[in-house]
Design a protein around this nucleic acid. Structure first.
Lengths: 275, 275
DNA sequence: CGGGTAGTTGATGGTCATCAAGGGGGGTGG
DNA sequence: CCACCCCCCTTGATGACCATCAACTACCCG
């Protein structure tokens, strides 16, 4: 319970904590400054009213047992650019994303970085057998997560076998995604990678949770740099490829983080591996 | 039970089946010709004497319940170059590798292939939520696998909660490996990739199961082509890189599939990301 | 208005893929 | 037994794709 979450003092019964952004850029070496606001008894409806419960691992807990869940969950707000899991640090907690988008990554000593995935609301984080986190996690926009201590989670697993099966399902899904990403990183060209990425993002938007399905219009929360680190490319190549796709009439690139997919068909041809 | 395993007739009580290599090269489109040799009642010691049980998921089943395991397991021999899981085919079975090495892969329509992992004895295959396999699997050398039908496996999971936890552990380990591989594929140079691969292979050799730990001497069962498809490179680049490492005094390249690691330290410097 | 971040576009170069040729080993059949 | 073939591997020559370096714009915030 000490360890990564640093030197802040926390009333054990608190139910909301905030990891503030106190530096302009994300220097991961610095510990996040945690500020606790609000404290008091645990609310019984804390989980009942959770917007992502239907789509998250928590859905397997019966309503009658929800209080058990609420007892061990600590809601945490992480501001944009803030890291809340440090690669290699002792793995003390599990997390469940309830809003916002998280990037998961691994890094080499010289700073090269690979984003291994983006975690949207409903996503469960921290599956690792080792005592240390195998990856880092950082908030892209403002993120809310439910935090569970490892011990408490272990107790929950003992009491709710369904939870374990659900986690296995979650892990299996991630494995499939990881295999797809390996194919992308190992064998696809830059154009194919970007096309695959855009289609995946559209797919993710159509799923439950997340903003409503809008006709080909994407609002990507991540920067070009994040996309590059996810696709194993550079910022420039991502930018150039998007420009090329726009010139081909496949997409429209709006201001900020908006991209509109004009021709899903053309992108699919690309993503499947034709130039 | 029909489906991928083709048109062979099998006595339901048989306990050993063989997937023969009946073609010089591995044409995956052809169904493996399955020949059943030996039949009769299930042996109680079938699993008790299994060499990989201590290191596989089966280890969580108590000796008193071992017969339950033996009832649903079908031992299968797959000859070199034979595929026994086809990407996209209905996922009817799970597998547990008991000897030999398996390559797991995904492919693009034009034939580009990415090997997502090698499965050594003790490895559990087939974790997928979907009704179809997300990857293909092919024997590198002569492989023995224990095959479990999906339904029977599901029953086992209901009866042995420990099994589920063990599978979750297995999946988590694979996820960590997949994340490492994404970092490798997305951000490492050819030299770094090959160095990482050699070190990983040495590590795998030191683990329980597998041949005994020998001083830096590796016997890689896979071809250069497999290594290339695993590392996202070409055969030529793998070959050139190995030659370069030999010239640097890092390794010795023996005949066949033997490689001796001379300087682990130099390889580690490389793998961590220095040129 | 100045500084910082994010993005786009251009010029150039390096890393690795591609094309090509040749050697060595294991299998089969004459 | 040797010729032949096929596969695997190695090494060389060339070129493409994408990274790197660099300049410029837009935007946000003080």
């Amino acid at each position: 319970m000490s360890g990564y979450f640093g030197a802040g003092t926390r009333a054990p019964e608190s139910e909301l904590e905030i990891i503030m952004s106190d530096m302009p850029s994300c220097q991961f070496e610095s510990r996040p400054r945690r500020i606790v606001i609000g404290s008091g008894g645990v609310q019984a409806d804390f989980c009942t009213n959770c917007s992502v419960r239907p789509t998250s691992v928590c859905s397997v807990i019966e309503p009658s047992d929800i209080s058990r869940l609420a007892e061990v969950a600590v809601e945490t707000i992480v501001s944009p650019g803030r890291g809340f899991i440090e690669e290699g640090a002792p793995a003390t907690d599990f997390f469940n994303v309830t809003s916002g988008t998280v990037k998961l990554f691994k890094a080499l000593p010289d700073g090269r970085r690979q984003i291994t995935g983006f975690a949207a609301p409903g996503h469960f984080l921290g599956l690792a057998v080792s005592d240390n986190y195998a990856f880092g996690a950082e908030a892209i926009d403002t993120v809310r997560v439910c935090r569970f201590s490892r011990e408490k989670m272990s107790e929950l697993l003992d009491d709710f076998p369904k939870l374990e099966r659900r986690l296995l399902e979650e892990a299996s899904n991630e494995l499939v995604a990881a295999q797809n990403q390996m194919l992308l990183l190992g064998r696809k060209t830059a154009r194919e990678r970007v096309a695959s990425f855009l289609l995946d993002q559209m797919q993710a938007g159509l799923l439950p949770g997340q903003p409503p399905p809008s006709g080909g219009r994407l609002h990507l929360p991540m920067t070009r740099g994040d996309i590059a680190d996810y696709l194993g490319l550079t910022i420039e190549t991502v930018s150039r490829t998007l420009s090329w796709m726009r010139a081909q009439g496949m997409i429209e690139v709006g201001k900020g983080y908006a991209i509109t997919i004009v021709s899903t068909a053309k992108l699919e041809v690309l993503a499947a591996g034709n130039s």
